[in-house]
Amino acid sequence: MSRRPGFLVYGLLSAFVLGSTFPLYWSFVIGSVTKERAIQSPLPLYPGGYFLDNARRVFDQIDFWSALANSVLISGISAASVVFFSTLAGYSFAKLRFRGSNVAMAFVVATMAVPTQLAFVPLLKTFSNLDLTGTRTAVVLPFLVTAFGVFFMRQYLLDAIPDELIEAARVDGCSQLRTFWTVAVPAARPAMAILALFTFMQTWTEFMWPLLILQGSDVQTLQTALDQLKIAPAGGIADIALLQAGTLLATIPLLLLFIATGRQLVAGIMQGAVKG
């Protein structure tokens, strides 16, 4: 496997990458023509000159910036919360011994297999009892902790911190909290960054739960705002050019984040995989 790859490998990989990029390009093509042109055969293959025009209509029709702010806020809080709780619990599971830790960890892992998103019936009811329906709080609450987060941090910390280090800290008379703070947190930092990034992206792309809890409310996330773009200015008719322009606009923030942090994300996914 040490042979230098030939043209075939580069060719196939390029084809795969082109395939990955094409839908975004297509979205831009359709988002940059008029709505009449968007459904006219033969379909356009190159971008037209109406993207800014369509984008302006997107901004007219939905409160894009407020939806963007909500998405950032909700994803950010979710990421911070997941990282906080997962690091604490993951450290405990990985490095400290306590009665029932095995059972508890097995339980957490097992719940990863249960589609709790199917549990929206009681959730809606519960949130309505709390008068939370249609609020940002209601959107973010379910994303405050994840089983995966704990699992991920535990796997990472298992190897990342030598036991001797913790022992040394103890011998020095450090309290558990201090040990956690001075030994575990610095060691966990790379994993924390990756988990934060990952959680941020996951929450950002959520659709069903925000739709369920927010529809009919003036609070929207980017994903649910997209759903609202299906309204044309005069009549309930889909305008594909508008829809694609909006889709692209809603994707751009995450795309920028990806360009900035893709390297870490790749490393994180691969690291998690080997340990998992």
């Binding site: 379910p142 994303f143 994840t146 089983a147």
Partner: peptide, 9 residues
């Protein structure tokens, strides 16, 4: 990454 949709509520 779970959608532990919520009953934090």
């Amino acid at each position: 990454t779970t959608r532990r949709k919520a009953a934090v509520g």
